[in-house]
Design a protein around this nucleic acid. Structure first.
Lengths: 247, 247
DNA sequence: CGAATCGTTGATGAGATTCAATAGCAGTGG
DNA sequence: CCACTGCTATTGAATCTCATCAACGATTCG
């Protein structure tokens, strides 16, 4: 997907620019950000709750999840991030991390030093606004997940989640023809929706047999977008994907 | 609680200053913000999903809730805000509101124009950071609610929520001797935790009979804080209440 | 003193969890 | 190339938490 010849900043810039008009100078400044690229396997934490990181982490390839554990060891996945996202951008202003982040598939991430980001924000106040806005959209997605997990029945809930992925991957150009990679296990989907693994499996089967999705291992096809949207009670307003003219 | 002689900005400033050192000049600048004070009854929305407000709303007295409805009409309360909070600070950078806000008790709110806030932020970049940080803490609370509602059983879940209120009200000086006002109906608590009203009622009874809380109508007493904390699997890390030296 | 809202209680059933076992599909190393 | 290992997906059965329905006190307020 991400051509190797492109700089690692590409998707981040594309995403910022898609909702927030950036000047050439601002784009150039972003491209100047030093990024340390690292490859990671699923299972090893990128950062951990309680850490005080000095850098942020930009997803280049693969998916990551934000999660926490209860004292009983139950895992809740609060967010799944896709290429172009910065899952811990908040650590710029919250010293102690209140959650962990781990890859859900093998992935490439780029580390950006807080100091570099801060200097950038000082020089380009509109980039401050753009980054702030990114964290606000994250928060909006948390709210929608609260609604989804708290009030919608499991069938609708899972449909909604798939709708969200489809929209978000589309926004960064990672979904073609209503088909997209979703390298997330059923166990992870279950922990994201507050359902048991067994139940998630059965709901996915129901969605398949109703013709709302087709899926092999890591790929999902949505034959009828309107139908899935309706089944998932999905309104993309909360993703705030429309262009926002300068603040 | 809030003495009438104090300017409406008092709690907001106290809250910002408690986690973020403010210079005298910055405090003075905050005090200069024009605020339009309005009294509201429970039940009437302050702002509504889809709105494009030109101002933010500062809670002066009483509680408000952030909520959304599913297409079935089920309400999820995503957040409860207490005096000193600005529940829609995000509208500064997200034009279209993705949720509604309503008082849960009679309350006083102060409206602050976006333009005034923006000018303030331009002049005092550290205030930008402070406000940004406020929105990040909101997001952190959303994450904890996702964990709480998704993974903890109802008894623990409710205990956790009460712990959170106790800490947050303490932080703005609205809890004395482990007793505090909680003008929130059981129906609202149920919608905040994704439980049914009937079940919420029974869990509260269980908490009372276990001696973890005492409550008459709108007031809650926590006789043994450590015990409640343990029952609620509560770790205040996510509230980010410790002081953050300048960014 | 109605009217409305909130809190409480009992009975019943559905949705979801848990336990347990099996099947499928990598990747690894001999 | 194949046995071995580990992870993911699938299935069935038993159980339980929690929601729903319906009714009845209790409290507040105009």
């Amino acid at each position: 997907m991400t051509a190797d010849s492109l700089p690692p900043h590409t998707l981040m810039i594309r995403k910022l620019a898609s909702i927030f008009s950036l000047t050439d100078e601002e784009q150039k400044a972003l491209l100047g950000l030093p990024i340390e690229v690292v490859a990671l396997k699923a299972g090893q934490d990128i950062v951990r709750i309680g850490d005080r990181p000095a850098h942020c982490c930009l997803i280049l390839e693969g998916f990551t999840c934000v999660y926490k554990l209860t004292s009983e060891g139950e895992r809740q996945i609060m967010a799944l991030h896709v290429p172009g996202d910065i899952p811990d951008l908040q650590s710029l202003h919250l010293k102690v991390l209140d959650h962990s982040i781990a890859p859900v598939s093998a992935c490439m991430v780029g580390f950006i030093q807080h100091d570099d980001l801060r200097q950038l924000c000082e020089r380009y106040p509109r980039l401050t606004a753009a980054f702030w806005r990114e964290t606000l959209i994250d928060a909006s997605i948390f709210r929608e997940w609260l609604l989804n997990n708290g009030q919608r029945e499991s069938y609708t809930r899972v449909a909604h989640l798939i709708c969200e992925f489809r929209m978000r991957l589309n926004a960064v150009g990672l979904a073609d023809n209503d088909t997209f990679e979703l390298p997330v296990t059923q166990s992870e989907l279950a922990d994201a929706t507050g359902m048991s693994l067994v139940h998630m499996n059965r709901v996915l089967q129901a969605l398949r047999s109703d013709g709302l999705i087709q899926s092999n291992r890591t790929q999902i096809t949505v034959p009828d977008w309107e139908k899935l949207k309706q089944a998932g009670d999905f309104d993309p307003l909360y993703l705030h994907l429309e262009k926002n003219p300068a603040a």
